[in-house]
């Protein structure tokens, strides 16, 4: 009962935030609605028992990546977006593409709606230690590879954003 109530509240906030991202004209409003989506997704992760994922969702996504976005929007002083030639083309090709995507998603969902599994509150809560064990034992190589990826990304960002002397 309480699980359903919480799910519907936060799902509604998620969808409203995502739609607001689509409808707002100013990039900073879009960024704020995306932060709201990320915050309510973190709460949905908590309902699914993924506490560590919920915490890093807030720390990494809402607290680091989106701060970077807001920072860049403020730095470039981005204004209201303008509609040009490309927007009409985007509408001509975009509407059928999105409609096709919606149809495909609906088809897959109807086909798989026989999944009877019910999510129970607190039904699958594992301590953070288990996540760490999995990450540093079974997924050690991917973990190291992503750390190299991050290093390359940092160097790339520094090279790209540096002013020419």
């Amino acid at each position: 009962m309480i699980h359903q109530a919480l799910f519907f509240i936060f799902a509604a906030i998620c969808v409203a935030g995502a739609l607001n991202l689509l409808l707002q004209k100013h990039p900073i409003s879009s960024a704020l609605s995306l932060i709201v989506v990320m915050g309510s997704l973190a709460l949905l992760y908590l309902l699914l028992g993924a506490q560590f994922v919920a915490a890093i969702q807030i720390i990494v996504y809402a607290g680091a990546i989106m701060v970077l976005f807001v920072f860049v929007i403020m730095l470039l002083n981005a204004g209201i977006e303008e509609h040009t030639e490309g927007s009409r083309i985007a509408v001509y090709f975009g509407v059928p593409a999105v409609a096709a995507l919606v149809g495909m998603v609906l088809y897959v969902l109807l086909k798989t709606s026989h999944i009877e599994y019910q999510v129970q509150l607190g039904g699958f809560v594992k301590p953070t230690r288990d996540v760490a064990m999995l990450l540093f034992r079974e997924y050690l190589l991917p973990f190291e590879v992503t750390s190299v990826l991050i290093l390359i990304a940092i160097m790339g960002a520094v090279v790209l954003a540096r002013r020419e002397p």
Binding site: I35, Q51, F52, A54, A55, I56, I58, I59, A62, G63, A64, V67, V70, F71, M74, P127, T128
Partner: peptide, 19 residues
């Protein structure tokens, strides 16, 4: 059981108020 991470998360989104 992730109390420390919750504090880190809340302080990290505290920057939005200022920004």
């Amino acid at each position: 059981n992730v109390g420390l991470l919750i504090i880190l998360g809340v302080t990290s989104i505290g920057v939005y108020g200022i920004a």
